[in-house]
Simulated assay, not measured.
Amino acid sequence: MKISGRTFVVSGGASGLGRACVRDICALGGHAAILDMNEELGSALVQELGGSQAKFLPCDVTDTDSIAGAVAAAVAWASETGKPLGGVIPAAGVGFPGLVLDKQLRPVSLENVDLVLRINLRGTLDLVRQVLPHLGAVEPEGVDGERGVVVMVASAAAFEGQMGQVAYAASKGAVAAMTLPMARDLSRFGIRVVTIAPSMFESNMTAHMSDKVRVGLKKAMEFPARPGQPEEFASLVRQAIENVMLNGVVIRLDGATRMPSKL
C-alpha cells in the first residue's frame, strides 16, 4: 500500500514511537490523525508538520466514547481532504512495574494491573475495532484489492518479561497473540495485520529509567549496543504498510537483545 494520499490513525501519536510514525507518514505524503491526551505536544507536532497533513484529536484510549469521537473526527477529516483511510497504528502504551508479590508479601496492585491492561490491550483493541468498519468501506486498491493495514505495538517483554513486568508482559503478550487471528478475521476484507515487538527504544516510557537500569539493559544487548531510535521503529512501520506480503506476523525489532530475568 502506498502511504501517499492515505490517512492513518495513530494513537499515542504526540510523543515517542507514535510521533516518529506520524512524522514519517507525513514525510511520505500521507496524512496522520494524531490521537493523544497531550494537547500541547499534539498541537506542537501539527504545527511542526505544517498543519495540512496532520490533525490532533484528543483521545483517552481507556474510554470507548472518547475513542468513538476521535475516530469519527478522523473519518470526517479524511473525507474532507479526499485522503481515504489507510490504516491504524495504536501506539499508546504504559508500563507500571510491580512484583506480583513483594518482599513484604504484598500482592501487586490490581489498580495498576487494570490500568496497564486498559491502555495497552483494551485500548489497542478498542481503537482498532472502531476504525475497522470505516477501513472496510474504503475502495480496494491494486491487484490484491487491499483496503488497509493494522500495525500494532507489542514488546520484547511479550517473550522475555522481566521481574516486575507481569502486567506489562501480559498486555503485550496478548497483543502479539491476537495478531494472527485478527489477520485471519480481516483477510476477506483485504486488511492486513502486523505487530512490531521492540526492545528498549528511546521513548517517554524509557526516559524515566535510572542509569543503573540503563546500564543493565545495555549488557543484555548484542548489536547495536544501544537503545533503538524512534525513527528506526517508524521505518519498520513504513515497511509494514508498504509490503503487502507482511501479514499475520509479529516482528521483533531488538538487535538480538534477549532480556534477562533481572538487571
Rank of each mutant, 00 (worst) to 15 (best):
A170T: 12
M163C: 13
Q104A: 15
M259Y: 08
R238L: 01
C21P: 00
K219F: 02
A54E: 09
A74V: 11
L45W: 00
A169S: 13
G51L: 04
L117R: 12
L236P: 08
A32M: 15
L105N: 12
I196W: 01
S52W: 07
I34W: 02
I251Q: 08
G86R: 12
E202C: 00
G86P: 10
G18P: 11
G29R: 03
Y168Q: 01
A157K: 02
A176K: 04
E111T: 13
V194Q: 05
A176P: 00
K212Q: 12
M245F: 15
V143S: 12
I3M: 07
E40F: 15
F189A: 05
A220H: 00
V138H: 13
M205A: 12
L127T: 08
Q162F: 09
V71W: 15
Q104F: 11
G93E: 05
E160T: 07
C59A: 13
D144M: 13
L132C: 05
A256M: 03
P230G: 05
Q229E: 14
N204G: 15
N120L: 06
V116Q: 05
N204W: 07
L125W: 03
A54N: 07
K212P: 00
V153L: 08
L35P: 05
A154I: 04
G173H: 00
G228A: 01
V143T: 14
V249G: 01
A156T: 14
A76N: 10
A240F: 02
S79N: 14
V213E: 14
A76I: 09
R214E: 11
V108T: 01
V193E: 02
L125G: 03
A176C: 04
A197F: 04
E242W: 13
P107L: 08
D185E: 15
A74W: 06
C21L: 00
L28I: 07
G93Y: 03
E202G: 00
V128S: 11
G98M: 12
L105C: 11
S4W: 00
P181R: 06
E39W: 00
T179R: 04
G12E: 14
E40A: 15
N38D: 12
N247G: 02
S109Y: 02
T124Q: 12
G16W: 03
F223K: 14
T195N: 00
E231D: 11
M163S: 15
A32V: 15
V215D: 02
T179F: 07
P227C: 04
A70G: 13
R118G: 08
G16V: 05
C21Y: 00
V88L: 08
S66M: 04
R147Q: 00
A156K: 12
V215H: 00
L57S: 06
T195F: 01
R192P: 01
A154E: 01
M221K: 01
P198I: 02
A207T: 04
A240S: 06
P198K: 04
A33T: 06
V166H: 01
F189Q: 09
P198E: 03
D185R: 09
E139D: 06
L132H: 04
G161R: 03
A170N: 08
S52P: 06
F96C: 08
A73S: 15
A176G: 02
A156C: 11
K172S: 09
P224T: 09
L135P: 08
R258G: 02
G30K: 12
A170H: 05
F201C: 02
G42A: 10
D65E: 10
